[in-house]
Amino acid sequence: MMENLSISDPPLQGPGGIPPGVLGRPPPQAQAQPQQLPAQMFTTAAQLLDLTDKKLMLALRDGRKLTGILRSWDQFANLVLQSTRERIFVPPGSGPDPSRGLYADIDKGIFLVRGENVLLLGEIDLDKDDDPPPGYDLAEVELVQSLAKARKAEEKLKEKSKVRKLAAIGFEGESQGEVLL
């Protein structure tokens, strides 16, 4: 709102301001419509503004999935999350029941995330938040951690051989140096 005002504009009539009409100035016309933000305000900041103090799911560049309450941010999408929990998943096929996936949550506390590491962030629908993701069951943290670790190692090996094969015929792997999961 402030940026639309100039020195020549009449002062705002706040609760503590001069009552309208006292100094001989006619009362200002009531604004016909609510103030709209200018188009250039639809920047990163404006999009993050309405996510503030909401529970978010944050996917990081290294594949981690965090949930937490967004408390602060800036124009680079550097973020501060409160009550952060990391959720780790093991897709169906590697757990005790091959038709079901597993997940576990680990409490992490407060996170300050540098913007460049953010893949995407999503507002969590609180109605669905307590339900486990379809096809997945909650399991012991240690179990999920060890399964996820084994899986990651396996995938890394696969990726490595893929990149090596591609490099041998002159391609540079798409995700070299930046693992996206």
């Binding site: 799911m57 999935k65 959720r87 897709p91 999503g122 379809p134």
Partner: peptide, 14 residues
Amino acid sequence: LKYPHLSAVKNVFI
């Protein structure tokens, strides 16, 4: 099924 972390999410900032 492959991306379970998005199951409770209604809107995203990418």
